[in-house]
Simulated scan of single mutants.
Amino acid sequence: MALVKDNILLQVVRGTLGDQITIYERNGQIIMAKKRGPSKKKPTKKQLEARYKMQVAAAYARVIIQDPEIKAYYKSLAGPGQNAYNMAVKDAYKSPEVQNIRFEESTVVVTAKDEFRVAEVDVRVVDPAGDILERGKAVLGRNSVEWYYKAASLPVGGKVIVVAVDLPGNETVREVKLE
Rank of each mutant, 00 (worst) to 15 (best):
V118I: 11
E49K: 14
R124F: 07
K46S: 08
E97W: 08
N83Q: 01
V98C: 09
M54T: 08
A78T: 01
Y73A: 13
N100T: 04
S95L: 07
V56N: 00
N83C: 00
A72V: 01
V121R: 13
R51A: 12
K40E: 12
I101D: 11
A61K: 08
I101V: 13
S76I: 03
Q47C: 04
Y52Q: 12
G79P: 00
Y85D: 00
Y60E: 03
A61F: 12
D127A: 03
E115F: 07
S76T: 07
R51D: 06
I101R: 13
V89P: 01
K42R: 12
N86L: 00
A92F: 04
Y60N: 09
Y85M: 03
A119N: 14
V123D: 01
D67W: 11
V108I: 13
M87I: 00
K46V: 10
Q55K: 15
V121S: 12
R51Y: 08
E69H: 06
A119I: 01
A88V: 05
D127T: 02
E115D: 13
R102M: 05
K46Q: 13
V123S: 03
Y85T: 01
D91N: 15
M54S: 02
M54N: 05
S95A: 14
K45E: 13
R124Q: 15
P68I: 07
T44M: 10
K42W: 04
A58Y: 02
D127Y: 05
A78S: 15
Y60V: 00
V109D: 07
K41S: 12
D91Y: 06
T107D: 10
A72D: 10
F116A: 10
I70F: 05
D67G: 05
K71V: 06
K42A: 14
A92K: 02
R124C: 04
Y73W: 05
E97R: 15
K45D: 04
K94Q: 14
I64H: 02
V125P: 02
E120D: 00
P80H: 09
L77H: 09
F116W: 10
V89S: 06
D122S: 10
T107E: 13
R51W: 10
T44I: 04
Q99Y: 10
A57K: 04
P43M: 03
R117A: 11
N100W: 08
Q47R: 15
E49D: 10
E104S: 11
Q55T: 09
V125E: 01
Y74F: 14
G81F: 05
S39I: 04
A92V: 02
D91E: 05
T107N: 09
Q47M: 12
T111A: 14
